[in-house]
Computed example of a mutant assay.
Amino acid sequence: MARILVAYYSRTGNTEKMARAVAEGAKDAGADVDLKRVEDVEPDDLKSADGIVIGSPTYYGLMSAEVKQLFDRSAKVRGKLENKIGAAFTSSASIEGGNQTTLLSIIQAMMIHGMVVAGDPMETGGHYGAIAIGSPDDNSLRTCRKLGERVAMLAEKICR
């Protein structure tokens, strides 16, 4: 059974709703899922996961400072996340809010660790991960569940 860590930062609750949907999708795919706020994630949590899905609100087209701090702390496990499956999701206030660049900032940090990144599992136009504008609607939550499912499936195939 693949072990999936879903880590998120959420100030308004929108990104947390998405995180719960990602975790639900991974569980439905048979994974053992750990859902945590980024502030509660330790570097060893990253090491023990087969798949890591990180969510952040979009702040100026980038991940939140709290998510960046997690990546800064992850330097302690540099070289130990190679070939783990990674994915990202974000929420913003508007369609022009910088969603794609936020996803890319998270993905870039994952790639520095040598992770294998899974993009948007549905042809919704998101390409890089799941996105919500404001409170996630049914389509956004469905995309989040599919993302969690896909990461769990890939982690099972590649990491187990």
Rank of each mutant, 00 (worst) to 15 (best):
I131G: 00
K27Q: 15
R142E: 14
G55V: 10
Y59H: 13
V116Y: 04
A130E: 07
T58D: 00
L154Y: 06
Y59K: 09
G114C: 03
S56V: 05
E39H: 10
I158A: 10
N83K: 14
L154M: 15
F71L: 07
T143N: 14
A118E: 02
M111H: 05
C159K: 09
M63P: 04
V117M: 01
G129E: 00
Q108A: 11
D44A: 11
V6I: 09
I52P: 01
L46A: 09
K36T: 01
D120R: 01
K76Y: 10
A155E: 02
G126I: 03
K68L: 14
A23Y: 02
S48F: 12
P136Y: 02
R78G: 08
K84F: 02
T102E: 07
A130C: 12
M122E: 12
L70T: 01
N139H: 11
V77R: 03
T143A: 13
A26I: 09
N83W: 13
Y128H: 15
E42Q: 13
S56H: 08
D72H: 08
A2Y: 01
T12G: 05
I95C: 06
L46Q: 02
D40N: 09
C159N: 13
A132T: 06
T15N: 09
A21F: 04
K80S: 11
E149H: 11
I4F: 04
I133T: 14
D40V: 08
L81Y: 11
I133G: 08
T124H: 06
S92K: 03
I54D: 00
I106C: 06
S91I: 05
D34P: 04
H113G: 03
K68M: 12
Y8M: 08
D28W: 03
G129C: 09
Q100R: 15
K68R: 15
A31V: 04
I95H: 05
G51L: 12
F89D: 00
V41M: 03
E149D: 14
E123F: 15
I158M: 15
V22R: 02
S10R: 03
V41A: 01
R78D: 11
L70W: 00
S56A: 09
G51V: 08
I52F: 08
E24R: 13
L147R: 07
G86K: 04
L46V: 09
G126C: 12
T102A: 02
S91H: 09
L35E: 13
D137W: 08
E149G: 02
